[in-house]
């Protein structure tokens, strides 16, 4: 009974229903290569969603992570090219740290000046994007210049299948990174006091202060973690698509926030889980993927994602009202 009432169960149910529906319209959906490609599309949005989940739980919102991701990615690759460095671990670390520092700027303004996170992150987002294009450069870095180590790393596969016609397809190992980070986030949220403090802050900031939580630590942790995840995802993304585009990720905030809200996180803070978020990400990616397969125009995809945000937010608001009633 308790299991049935959980948001995750409901979301999983809806997801399953949607999969059956899409599978009926388009039987190719259930083919292994399509499922593998779906899971591959989950990775970047999913990693970013973990950060957004953390921010939403704490009662904030973050629209700056796509800017941070693109800045961390482009700066790192520019740096690698300038230094002639070809590796994986250090660049990923560098991108993560860059994202973390950007996030710290968000945390500073949200904590110190008690500013509304939406305004802070809108501002830092514009600043970072503008700085990147104005100072660092506007040209794309293509496959011919991309560091090969990154591309090779992102090509790693867990399983590989050869089709009858000789072409191969596989499941990218990046999925493992995503699942690993998700597991880590789950453990942080559920089994550490800093994770619980995010829930407390999102539940009632005044009560959290009175209870004696160190809200400065909490807020910095939240925004730094969101920034770090974005930076990491940004660089991983360029490895996966063999391209570093300083104008990448425009409009991605909508997709990611839609996915997190779809996954049952409350836009008002205090509620949300990693499992729900992963389901939400999967659902969103699947819907977008199906729209592409059905040859729906990209402009109409926007309409769909926008509607998802509205409907999912309305549903979660309705749920929260019913709980407190």
């Amino acid at each position: 009974m308790a299991l049935l009432r959980r948001s995750e169960t409901v979301i999983a149910g809806i997801l399953l229903l949607a999969m059956v529906l899409i599978g009926t319209i388009n039987p190719a959906f259930w083919q292994l290569d399509n499922l593998f490609s779906l899971m591959r599309s989950n990775v970047i949005i999913g990693i970013m969603a973990l950060g957004v989940l953390l921010v939403l739980i704490s009662g904030g919102i973050d629209v700056s992570f796509p800017a941070f991701a693109v800045a961390a990615m482009y700066l790192t690759i520019k740096g690698m090219l300038a230094l002639g460095y070809n590796g994986v671990v250090l660049p990923l670390l560098a991108a993560t740290v860059m994202g973390l520092l950007f996030g710290a700027v968000n945390g500073f303004f949200v904590y110190k000046f008690r500013m509304i996170p939406l305004i802070v992150t809108l501002g830092t987002s514009a600043m970072v994007r503008g700085f990147l294009l104005g100072v660092v450069g506007t040209s794309m870095i293509n496959i011919n210049k991309m560091p090969t180590a990154l591309i090779d790393f992102a090509r790693t596969e867990v399983v590989s299948v050869t089709k009858a016609d000789g072409t191969t397809y596989g499941l990218t190992a990046m999925v493992l990174i995503y699942v690993g980070l998700a597991l880590a986030m789950h453990l942080v949220l559920r089994y550490t006091m800093i994770g619980r403090s995010a829930y407390a802050l999102g539940g009632d900031p005044e009560a959290a202060r009175r209870a004696g939580f160190d809200l400065r630590k909490t807020i910095f942790f939240i925004y730094c973690a969101a920034g770090a995840l974005a930076g990491f995802a940004g660089l991983l993304h360029s490895g996966m698509i063999w391209l570093a585009n300083p104008r990448d990720f425009v409009g991605l905030e909508l997709d990611v926030i839609a996915a997190v809200v779809l996954g049952g996180a409350s836009i008002f803070g205090g509620r949300g889980s990693v499992l729900g978020t992963m389901l939400g990400v999967f659902m969103l990616v699947m819907v977008k993927n199906s729209l592409i397969i059905m040859r729906v125009d990209t402009t109409w995809q926007l309409v769909v994602v926008g509607s998802i945000v509205i409907v999912a937010t309305a549903l979660s608001a309705w749920r929260d009202r019913r709980r407190t009633a």
Binding site: R196, Y199, A200, G203, D204, E206, A207, R210, A211, G270
Partner: peptide
């Protein structure tokens, strides 16, 4: 015990 109880409703 404050009037608003200072509790976390979401927990």
């Amino acid at each position: 015990i404050y009037q608003d109880f200072s509790l976390f409703g979401n927990l």
